[in-house]
């Protein structure tokens, strides 16, 4: 009965993600419709004749009603066809497939860093609320949020990568070891701005759990040490940070765009920056869709995780 409750909850959340995804697709499709400029002119060049432009419009399907164009777009997306880049040389799908692993590794490593940094500092800060350590961590957290990611990236390159030689100055690796090494500094730059937000939430959760009656009741029953911390503090305190971390994915993604440029990582963020400079709409559209879907998926996973941590949310 309880298990069906959990699976029911997961199923309902999955169903809710479907209309959300459709709205996303509609927005991404509409994005192209509202930006200034004529796609046909983009293809044919500014000196093309009206007849040529019209022929291109028919070829691109732009003469069709908008809703038909949308259905057509949905069909293409469903088959993984994102169109080609502006130069026509590469398929957008190929571009995404080659950049996605880089961005995924970057995000994964920086999520691990974020959780480690936030977890350690939150536990330290919560030891004595409003004590010296708590205040110092609070000041550091304010710095962390305030430091621009691109600047921190440059500082890490100049201050760590160059003098030590332990990390590449930029670019990506081709074996797991070199990939991880290349990801460390950019992931760190990314984590520094996100970790403080998570830390603050975790810290207040820990303080609250330690003051709770269930914590006292567990102590009265003889639970102590790490079992007390794990079962009656961290487990309860983790609930808000987990959903927050899911929400912070948007921040990590936009940070990834910046960091990939700073470190010259061949990921989706770098492709997006380049596409924006070249006004390459197919690429922008494809990447926007991928990023949005990633946010939907991560939030879905976050919701499910929260439900497993705190059964009260499954109503």
């Amino acid at each position: 009965m309880i298990h069906s409750g959990r699976f029911g909850f997961v199923g309902r959340r999955l169903l809710q993600a479907i209309p959300l995804t459709l709205v996303l697709l509609l927005l991404v499709f509409a994005m192209l419709k509202v930006v200034p400029g004529d796609p046909a002119m983009q293809v044919a060049g500014p000196r093309a004749s009206a007849a040529t432009l019209q022929a291109i419009r028919v070829q691109l399907g732009l003469d069709q009603p908008v809703w038909e164009q949308f259905l057509h777009y949905l069909g293409r997306i469903a088959t993984g066809d994102f169109g080609t880049t502006a130069t026509g040389s590469t398929k957008v799908g190929t571009l995404i497939a080659s950049g996605a692993p880089v961005t995924l590794v970057l995000l994964a490593v920086s999520t691990v860093f974020t959780v480690l940094i936030a977890g350690a500092t939150a536990l330290l800060a919560a030891r004595r609320p409003d004590g010296l350590v708590d205040r110092m961590i609070n000041v550091m957290a304010a710095f962390g949020v305030g430091v621009p990611t691109f600047w921190l990236g440059i500082v890490l390159l100049a201050g760590v990568a160059l003098p030590t030689g332990a990390f590449p100055i930029g670019g990506w690796g081709d074996t797991p070891a070199t990939v991880l090494r290349a990801a460390v500094l950019p992931a760190l730059a990314l984590s520094v701005s996100v970790a403080p937000v998570l830390m603050a939430s975790l810290r207040s959760g820990i303080v609250e759990a330690r003051r709770s009656e269930y914590h006292a009741a567990a102590q009265a029953a003889g639970v102590r040490g790490w079992k007390l911390t794990r079962g009656f503090v961290l487990r309860n305190a983790a609930v808000p940070p987990v959903s927050l971390l899911a929400a912070l994915t948007t921040l990590l993604l936009s940070g990834a765009v910046v960091v990939e440029s700073t470190f010259g990582l061949p990921g989706l963020g770098l492709s997006l920056t380049q596409a924006a400079q070249n006004r390459d709409f197919n690429v922008i559209q494809g990447l926007t869709l991928v990023f949005s879907l990633a946010v939907v998926v991560v939030n879905l996973v976050g919701d499910v995780l929260v439900a497993f941590l705190d059964p009260r949310v499954m109503v």
């Binding site: 006292a216 009741a217 079962g231 487990r235 309860n236 705190d310």
Partner: peptide, 8 residues
């Protein structure tokens, strides 16, 4: 209500 850990 408050003395029983809601996550267990």
């Amino acid at each position: 209500m408050t003395a029983l850990n809601p996550t267990m």
